Amino acid sequence: MGKHRRLGGYRLLDEIGRGSTAVVHLAMDSFGREVAVKELQEEFVAEPEARQRLAQEMAAQARVRSGHVARLLDGRLDGERPYVVMQYVPGCSLGDLVADYGPPRRERLLRLARGMALGLADVHDAGVLHRDVSPGNVIVLGDRPTLIDFGIAREAGAEQLTRRGMVIGTPAYLAPELIEGGAATTASDVYAWAATLAYAATGRPPFGRGSLHGVCFRILRGQADLEGAPEPLAALLRRGLDRDPARRPAARWFAGALADWTGVSSGRSRALLA
């Protein structure tokens, strides 16, 4: 155990993720609990924008309280190696789950859809935009999904750190208005939720594979592939993938619409689907 590097009060055990500017470690705190520690890579420590982006991630995630969203636990931005500490979420990504085992059965799929909608609704209720809902950023354990990675999230109204015209997010799950240069909104998060679930329901990216240009073209044309997606989920996904963001219901609405179908009584969910 002595060979493991320490960062703050945390012992770094293993690398579990790596992005463009940061590394995520499985770590142990002073109570012996597993946590996830995200630290800036050494070459980005001196860049103010990288520190500011990490600070924005902390500020956004700190506002969210949800059983379906990884919690922020700790962090330090002023040291030699800035880091944030998050709840470690066991399980595997929705992307890996579908790639390895195929689409979940209808009942499980509906439960995953509702859990994801509840988590996203809690994010939005906290005044935060996630901006990168995608199969790689949903961890599944049993029937419980947890939304992770607030690396490009921001509080609504916070300063935009990306350059104008730069597309941020996972391209296959981007809302059309973002491809066209529009601002991120709760509606664009909802679109990404629906696109992510379309992948889970069919085992295929909803706008196909191939060149980025081709994928974006199909997104802009509204050519979503939902063949094989079970009802009532397919009907809901069509609403979430509406080309017009003003016509997409809120995440909380989708959670309510899915309630009766997952054994949770909402009193009016089936009527909402009509």
Score class of each variant (00 low, 15 high):
68 H>N: 14
40 L>H: 04
31 F>M: 08
56 Q>M: 13
67 G>K: 14
31 F>Q: 07
55 A>P: 02
31 F>I: 05
45 V>R: 03
48 P>F: 06
33 R>E: 05
70 A>H: 06
43 E>P: 07
67 G>S: 14
29 D>G: 02
73 L>A: 13
63 R>M: 11
55 A>F: 12
37 V>T: 01
39 E>H: 04
68 H>C: 11
23 V>N: 01
36 A>W: 00
26 L>I: 04
55 A>T: 07
58 M>F: 15
25 H>F: 01
74 D>P: 05
56 Q>H: 10
35 V>W: 01
59 A>V: 08
53 R>I: 05
29 D>M: 04
68 H>V: 05
35 V>H: 03
46 A>R: 13
65 R>L: 13
74 D>K: 12
69 V>R: 04
77 L>G: 15
41 Q>H: 09
52 Q>S: 15
34 E>T: 06
48 P>Y: 08
50 A>F: 06
67 G>H: 13
76 R>N: 13
46 A>P: 12
35 V>F: 00
27 A>M: 01
45 V>M: 06
26 L>F: 01
51 R>K: 11
42 E>S: 14
40 L>Q: 02
52 Q>A: 14
32 G>N: 03
23 V>K: 00
32 G>E: 06
76 R>C: 14
75 G>K: 06
46 A>W: 13
37 V>M: 03
46 A>V: 15
52 Q>W: 11
43 E>F: 15
69 V>I: 14
25 H>D: 00
76 R>K: 15
61 Q>F: 05
44 F>I: 07
76 R>A: 11
68 H>R: 15
71 R>V: 08
76 R>G: 15
38 K>D: 01
66 S>K: 10
